[in-house]
Design a protein around this nucleic acid. Structure first.
Lengths: 344, 344
DNA sequence: CTGTTAGCGCCTTCAC
DNA sequence: GTGAAGGCGCTAACAG
């Protein structure tokens, strides 16, 4: 029971390395190929030999080494995932859902964190592709030219998540950030809000939503919202500072639209600290992972973007392609506005 | 610029697979080994040849395949990480910090999610070890006997995170969950609380903290807190239901101690919905990722366990070992109680 | 400096 | 049924 080393009848390898197919073969007194067959197609091996081999496998603690490459056109059963971050993040749901579906199907996942940088993405891509993954999941549709080239040359199924765009590399599952910005603008306008402000996380998609919000307001004849741009990664502390800056500069908004629920959390804290009633005196609009936000503060409005759904669909599409299907997913998962306590 | 396939002067491989060392060699008119050397030790190759090779590499878009195994005693530069979950989770910080440090050092990470199950851990372990990772990070010190055996046989550096224990497999960085339970009990007693309740996430470490809390209260002559046990994974909705159940059963606590900040979030929502003032009528104690919790609700007390610090230290210890050091980390990172608005 | 040889751990093809 | 030979992509060791 206790993890004592080497209670097994096998002496272990002199070099301390894990046992190989050959070691097992020697131990069982058969040839390497027989061991291989016993493990891969047990039914074609005579029961007596099979038993001997299995015993040797058990005794040695043998585990087949998964070669990245081999003579057979074999898959690596490795799938690479690139997201900006998983902390305080709207992407954790997607990654979790992806991993769950892929793991069930017998694949393993290499994860890379880009920190919202396309250069970082390029570096990671380069490193990850050396593992010859069977497929790859990316966040967004913005990549460097070099990345696009490498990806198209890799010849593996790809999914870009969390965005919509005209020229996806391969498959695409996400939603339109412009549509989110517009929808938020319209919903808030409909509730009578006229003085807007925004806390923007300075990443491409955050900017897209902010600009769409601003443009939609402009169409209604409203001035551009007071805006504070914040460097990723998002933290509650950052959101809190952001709102403080906004208010200190003299902005006096009825509603502040935040790039993420995490920032919105911080904004709520600052509003609370200043004695502002939410949403009566200052409404707060978030974005992202409904699960952790919506239950929390009934006063917080937010946008549910179905992060887990994107992950599951991406994974299923990849698996289908790896199974030989001609699937070419192009899916807009949309989003849902969750509006709280209209007070106008 | 646009990702058109095959603008390069290289015809590509007939089978559509990525180019190999051999392909590059053929294209450059040299032998494979020269290509290998040009890439790994450029200085020992004559400039003229070097240039030819580099050109061929560029033209073909060659990327070396990282073999898991080879003739050389080469490392896989792959490090496996096992955590229960990354969603709504106190573990995301640790994973992010781990990945950051490891990636900077040129390693890649295989991630596995155990869902708080040691059986699942065993399966994942089995699959992950086939990749021959250079090192491994585990959560907690509770593993199946088979897992312990496999791990000790793997002969790679290990770190167990998020716990303290007497017989770690190898290295250990975490804190004592019993100490957390006791400290929470004492701190709350010191503020005059006498009627306790607990919302427990039903995982080994959560139970450990709850039991320690209960035992410490018993020492002070207090009855065991009303307790609701909840199945992982933690969500705000779950915490909310939990508190509802607790109160519906007739419990009338002054303070409810939650297994995680995520559950605490939900509890706060339920308290709010019932018109209970926090912390005057019901205090809420969380646990976990201070970053997202403490800034949020000034009324929420919590325990900061320094998840990122554990990740960074684990990564650094592993890197040291891989670099040949004799490091054998045994670190108690402790925790910090963050108490809000004492109202007694 | 460069090429040839050999071998890593495994599996496929083809004999026995 | 079983084994021997050969090959996958790559790199150390040894030749030239």
């Amino acid at each position: 029971m206790s993890g004592d080393r080497n209670t097994s009848p096998w002496p272990g390898r002199p070099d301390g390395k894990p046992p190989t197919l050959k070691d097992v073969a020697r131990l069982a007194g058969v040839s390497p190929i027989t061991v291989s067959r016993t493990l891969n197609q047990p039914e074609i091996v005579r029961p007596a030999l099979r038993e001997k081999v299995f015993r040797a496998v058990r005794e040695s603690g043998y585990q087949p080494a998964m070669l990245t490459t081999g003579s057979a056109p074999q898959e690596s059963r490795l799938i690479a995932i690139l997201v900006p971050t998983i902390v305080n993040s709207i992407f954790a749901d997607t990654v979790q859902a992806l991993m769950q579906t892929l793991t069930e199907a017998g694949h393993q996942t290499l994860l890379g964190l880009t920190d919202y940088s396309t250069e970082r993405e390029e570096q990671l891509l380069d490193a990850l592709l050396r593992r010859r993954p069977d497929a790859m999941v990316l966040t967004g549709t913005l990549h460097t030219a070099a990345s696009r080239l490498r990806l198209s040359q890799a010849g593996i199924p790809l999914v870009e998540c969390w965005d919509q765009g005209e020229r996806p590399l391969d498959m695409l599952v996400g939603f339109s950030h412009v549509a989110v910005g517009q929808a938020v603008a319209r919903a808030l306008l409909a509730r009578g809000y006229r003085h807007f402000a925004s806390l923007t996380l300075d990443d491409p998609r955050g900017r897209l939503r902010r600009d769409a919000l601003r443009d939609e307001l402009a169409i209604q004849g409203l001035a551009a919202p007071a805006d504070v741009s914040l460097p990723p990664p998002a933290t509650p502390a950052l959101g809190r500072q952001g709102l403080a800056r906004l208010l200190d500069v003299g902005a006096c908004p009825e509603v502040v639209v935040c790039s993420s629920d995490t920032l919105a959390h911080g904004a709520l804290a600052e509003a609370h600290a200043r004695g502002l009633r939410v949403p009566e005196e200052l409404a707060v609009m978030g974005f992202g992972n409904l699960a952790s936000a919506a239950h929390l503060i009934p006063a917080l409005s937010t946008v549910d973007v179905r992060g887990a759904e994107m992950g599951t669909q991406a994974a299923e599409a990849l698996l289908a392609r790896l199974a030989g299907a001609e699937t070419r997913l192009r899916r807009d998962t949309g989003f849902e506005l969750v509006m709280r306590e209209s007070t106008r």
